[in-house]
């Protein structure tokens, strides 16, 4: 199957900030979490995919159509939920639905009604009068039923309550069932990343740290408790060490080194996703 999204050699400079160079391919049937510190360029990248920001270099294709060209036929293939919603304030949920639904040929009215009921959204209230959490729920309720093959969510759950977050994760999993859809989700919520993502695309201050398969990334990290302290010399794979505790991002090489040096460890455990992301982002802090 062709890639839904393909990004090549993308770069953008905004004042002192430089994003890229960046390559990314999104295949159908996958969920990619876009991760990075604040100001790492996640939202800018999503806005470039939506042709809201012009790239300095490189190109973006959605369903094989160049986004930054005069051909705008790629637009119905993408449903985008921005972090900050602009222009919805004076409208009620009902009015917004009447405005948005006809623009998407695959609009799923039953999913819309189900989400309205699940999230208990008052459709007759003006958007500006809703709390931030309810605004976010309404936004999702008006985004998911568009049934566009590529769903882009920028911080979709930052104001939502815990039960609603759980509901949303279930809805997104159901939504992915047909297998020909993809989601890109920029999020700081570890639960979203853990439960939803297949891939992690990690940015740090505009630079790509990697595009990882989640399970492989989890397997690549291990924590060792050593019986004796080790010398100060560098150990293959070790990315963090605190007295007798080491963290490696290449357990195979680390263990082979231990074997060579006859170093014993008393315990080995895998790392939590949160720890891995923290390591990835803090390791590059000084760069």
């Amino acid at each position: 199957m062709d890639a839904l999204l393909s990004i090549r050699d993308l770069e953008k400079r905004i004042d002192e900030f430089h994003l890229g160079p960046l390559d990314l391919t999104i295949e159908p049937g996958t969920i990619t979490a876009l991760i990075g510190n604040n100001g790492s360029g996640k939202s800018t990248l999503l806005k470039m995919i939506m042709n809201l920001v012009q790239p300095g270099m490189g190109n973006i294709k959605v369903n094989n159509i160049l986004v930054h060209s005069d051909n705008e036929n790629w637009k119905p293939y993408v449903a985008y939920q921005p972090q900050t919603i602009i222009g919805w304030d004076p409208f009620t949920g009902e009015m917004l639905k009447d405005l948005i639904a006809p623009l998407y040929p695959n609009w799923d009215e039953s999913l819309f009604l189900r989400m309205v009921e699940l999230f208990e959204i008052p459709l007759n209230k003006k958007f500006s009068k809703l709390s931030q959490g309810v605004q976010q729920k309404l936004n999702l309720t008006l985004t998911l039923p568009r049934n566009a093959p590529l769903l882009i969510l920028d911080e979709p759950t930052s104001f939502m309550d815990i039960p609603s977050k759980k509901l949303l994760i279930d809805l997104l999993v159901d939504w992915m069932e047909p297998g020909d859809r993809s989601i890109i989700i920029a999020s700081h919520q570890i639960d979203d990343i853990k439960k939803l993502s297949d891939y992690l695309f990690v940015l740090h201050n505009g630079e790509v740290l990697g595009h990882f398969e989640k399970e492989a990334l989890m397997e690549n990290y291990a924590r060792y408790w050593l019986s004796d302290s080790v010398s100060e010399e560098s150990i293959p794979g070790v990315v963090s060490r605190e007295e007798h505790v080491l963290i490696s991002n290449n357990p195979k090489e680390t263990e082979s080194y231990f074997e060579q040096m006859n170093t014993k460890w008393t315990n080995r455990s895998s790392l939590e996703m949160e720890d891995i992301i923290t390591l990835l982002l803090t390791k590059n802090k000084g760069q």
């Binding site: 939506m50 042709n51 809201l52 705008e72 637009k75 119905p76 993408v78 985008y80 921005p82 602009i86 222009g87 919805w88 304030d89 948005i100 623009l103 998407y104 566009a148």
Partner: peptide, 20 residues
């Protein structure tokens, strides 16, 4: 819209949707 851009909210809304 941000530190530098002024625009009509309905223009921004349109840009987020599949509107030419």
């Amino acid at each position: 819209i941000n530190g530098k851009i002024f625009a009509s909210p309905s223009t921004i809304m349109g840009l987020h949707l599949p509107i030419k």
